[in-house]
């Protein structure tokens, strides 16, 4: 039963409720913050302890790293700049070849992986799947290939297919299949189903419906994902050589282990420039694709 004396007492009543809620909210906030802070500190300490990470070690190591970096930098004089640069990049020919191999590896792997993802993604989309069984199979397969790092696949493939880019390409391709399989499927699940219904109603088969009803809608998304994956894959391809699976990584790790200091900086600069250029190019393309969509 509400005391119905309009105006004054109801206002006081409301004010009391407000004050109470305010206090509750503040209390809850404080608790949350305290809890969050506690969790955060615990995590930090835990990670530091288990990771045997101490700021002291880092500070001790910093000058060592500085010294190392200094040794990798070449001696460049203005007077003999041309000769100095030529000496620094003496292996340019070989390295450029390997860089080309790296980029091509990434290109092929992205292509193969994305084609595979294209085949799998429709089965893995909840709104398009033929039946529950194929949906789960497609999703789990994508997950499997996506979860296992490409380097792990590369390790296995090097043993099976020998040293060289073949192992690297297959490894990156499988991983890309998984990654893009999921992204493509998610894009599929967000489409407008009306064209699909229209096509079903005129007797279109499942494959045809995917081709004409789904793909026109998701093509820009697919292209964007493929470009993004290519950017990532170039980086991965660059380090594939660490396990002997091709690309410029092998040169880099040889240089590090054999203490060819100046080679390290030279190769690194080449890698950074290549990856940087490809990144910029892909970003432009992706913005062109997605930008066009949102403008229209």
């Amino acid at each position: 039963m509400l005391v119905t004396s309009p105006g004054h007492s109801t206002k006081a009543h409301q004010r009391a409720i407000f004050d109470r809620q305010c206090a509750e909210l503040r209390q809850r906030r404080r608790l949350h913050t305290a809890f969050g802070l506690l969790l955060f500190v615990a995590l930090c300490i835990g990670s530091a302890v288990i990771g045997k990470f101490s700021p002291i070690a880092l500070i001790e190591g910093a000058p060592k790293l500085g010294e190392y970096v200094q040794r990798t930098l070449p001696a460049l004089h203005w007077s003999s700049l041309g000769a100095d640069l030529a000496y620094w990049f003496y292996g340019l020919r070989k390295w450029l070849d390997l860089l080309l191999e790296t980029v091509l590896m990434a290109y092929l792997a992205t292509l193969l992986g994305s084609l595979g993802a294209l085949l799998v993604c429709f089965y893995g989309s909840r709104n398009l799947a033929l039946n529950g069984w194929s949906y789960h199979l497609a999703r789990r397969a994508s997950e499997f290939f996506r979860t296992i790092p490409d380097l792990v696949f590369a390790l296995i493939f090097v043993f099976a297919f020998g040293l060289g880019p073949l192992a690297g390409i297959l490894a990156i391709a499988l991983h890309s299949l998984g990654a893009n399989g999921k992204l493509f499927a998610e894009a599929n699940e967000n489409i407008d189903m009306k064209p699909v219904e229209g096509l079903r109603a005129l007797g279109s088969g499942w494959v045809q419906t995917m081709r004409f009803g789904v793909m026109p809608q998701v093509m820009p998304n697919y292209a964007s994902y493929v470009l993004w994956r290519f950017e990532i894959n170039v980086r991965t391809a660059a380090v594939m050589g660490f396990v002997g699976a091709g690309g410029i990584g092998m040169e880099l790790i040889t240089a590090v282990r054999s203490l060819y200091y100046e080679d390290i900086s030279a190769i690194l600069i080449l890698i950074v420039v290549t990856v940087g250029l490809i990144d910029i190019g892909c970003e432009r393309l992706r913005h062109a694709l997605i930008g066009r969509e949102t403008l229209e």
Binding site: L58, E60, K64, L65, Y68, L252, I271, G276, D279
Partner: peptide, 29 residues
């Protein structure tokens, strides 16, 4: 930020191993 992103993470790991030695510390960095 771009430099951090462009260099592959394994390469960073390689460097930090040199700085702080083998072990998880390098990985954390």
């Amino acid at each position: 930020i771009a430099l951090f992103r462009t260099v592959p993470d394994l390469v960073w790991a390689l460097f930090f191993v040199i700085a702080v030695g083998l072990g998880p510390a390098a990985g954390v960095l």
